[in-house]
């Protein structure tokens, strides 16, 4: 499944990486502890988190994640969005919480 399909299915707001939405999503990962995210997700996974700190971009970039969904409608810091553009990491926002975002992605076949 491609990022653009997920954006449509979950009605996400795209903050950065509008030109990167053809990216293939290999699976889902949810978590807010950066050390966990550095250890666990696989390349191409989409990451669901509450964190908005700029460190999330470095983490996503080093793990080659396909994108980040920030939940609960939280607004990422300016610095975070700037880094996201530089590192080519699509950042998207959902008004839902992690549980429902993960639930709905799982429902449309993301594992």
């Amino acid at each position: 499944m491609k990022l653009k399909d997920i954006i449509i299915a979950l009605n996400l707001e795209v903050k950065t990486g509008k030109d990167l939405l053809e990216r293939e999503v290999t699976g889902g990962y949810a978590g807010d502890l950066l050390s966990d995210v550095l250890a666990n997700p696989k390349k191409g996974n989409i990451w669901i988190t509450l964190q908005i700190h700029q460190n999330i971009i470095a983490v996503a970039s080093s793990k080659q994640l396909s994108g980040i969904i920030i939940v609960n409608g939280r607004k990422p810091e300016e610095e975070t969005l700037k880094k996201a553009k530089e590192e080519k990491i699509p950042v998207m926002i959902s008004n839902l919480l992690t549980y429902e975002v993960a639930g709905r992605l799982y429902e449309i076949g993301i594992r």
């Binding site: 950066l34 509450l50 908005i52």
Partner: peptide, 17 residues
């Protein structure tokens, strides 16, 4: 909301966001 001066180790304990 979202402003924090917490060091990373605090964030890893689930606070400081």
């Amino acid at each position: 909301q979202g402003y924090s001066t917490a060091p990373d180790w605090v964030r890893e304990l689930g606070f400081g966001a």
